[in-house]
Nucleic acid binder design. Structure first.
Lengths: 186, 186
DNA sequence: GTCTATATCTCGATAGAC
DNA sequence: GTCTATCGAGATATAGAC
């Protein structure tokens, strides 16, 4: 195999997929490069031909993971109401793949450096953009919905008791739905 | 020094204080036992005469840290409105001491074991209890306020830009205030 | 570009002197 | 009960054969 310009891109994609999956659920520190590469079907040594460091992988994985969530949600449901229900659902809270980094890593990010916070903010602004443009909410209402979505999922994931977790999701769902009806454009 | 029954309690308290301070801001993995003991003015070796493991210290530090927040807030302001304003403030987001573990560790907890989630839930139920009993909100409204408080502070801490961070706090403040007026008992 | 091997470091936890 | 010293595991990152 003399050259393989697009095979390298594919491998990179595989690493990113594995990284997004593992980082989102377990955070930066609890995931090793070995874990990521093993799940991608490779070994440690190959990693540094694709990324400069673990930190670089982390911030790229956040953006990658968020893009996948958006693509997935868009392909399944068009109306914003269904998107909100799916986001604030038990399936999402327990998702092993395709979970939203915004909710799953909200306090993990604050502990990392500025580069990761920038990546996180960029993704958050993308969410706010979707909420304003596709459902006609004001920016403040979109911000409020974001807090309820991210805070709701994060909190539902933190508690031990599933019935309390479900109540948290339910309350957040009801309120975001209300925001959508009262302040939505359509 | 033949015996010192209460000096041991004092030392334990010192370790817990240091642990709550460091863990709350940096999470479980980014803080070493050495860090905790050093800030408490001791060395590693003495640690295991007070706690069985790092995990045990972590869950105890969460409860300890939350109790300190409640005690601090109660001593300064009586009315719930002031408490909410202080909680959803920049001072709290940037606090190096006395920050609320519920907000600062919301996604860190989900990555740890069940014991830590139980400790977290216990603290959360304490907050819900305060919100219902001391401001006459229904349980659902109290839950909603909790999501806004915890989610608001967590999200404000995650983003890079301070102006966006302030807008998040502002939106969350306005909404919790509204909840308090509409659904509060007094 | 991927592999094995390894250098270097940090951490949790333990042992033993005082 | 606190100290210094150390064990052993596991991490990031690098080197070199293929």
């Amino acid at each position: 195999m003399p050259w393989s310009p697009e095979q390298k891109i594919q491998t990179r994609e595989k690493i990113l997929h594995s990284a997004a999956r593992l980082f989102t659920r377990n955070g930066f520190e609890k995931v090793s490069i070995n874990d990521v590469m093993q799940q991608a079907g490779l070994t440690r040594g190959a990693f540094y031909k694709h990324f400069a460091s673990k930190s670089e992988l982390y911030s790229e994985a956040i953006v990658y993971g968020a893009r996948k969530v958006v693509a997935e949600r868009k392909s399944r449901a068009i109306d914003m109401k269904s998107v909100l229900e799916a986001y604030l659902s038990r399936d999402h809270v327990e998702a092993v793949d395709g979970a939203c980094p915004l909710a799953f890593l909200v306090s993990d990010i604050a502990q990392q450096g500025n580069i990761d916070q920038k990546a996180y903010q960029q993704v958050l602004e993308g969410l706010i953009d979707i909420l304003t443009k596709e459902s006609g909410q004001s920016e403040d209402t979109a911000l409020l919905s974001s807090i309820l979505m991210i805070g709701g999922v994060a909190l539902a994931r933190a508690v031990n008791d599933e019935s309390l977790s479900d109540r948290i999701l339910s309350v957040a769902r009801n309120e975001t739905r209300k925001q959508l009806i009262e302040n939505g454009g359509e």
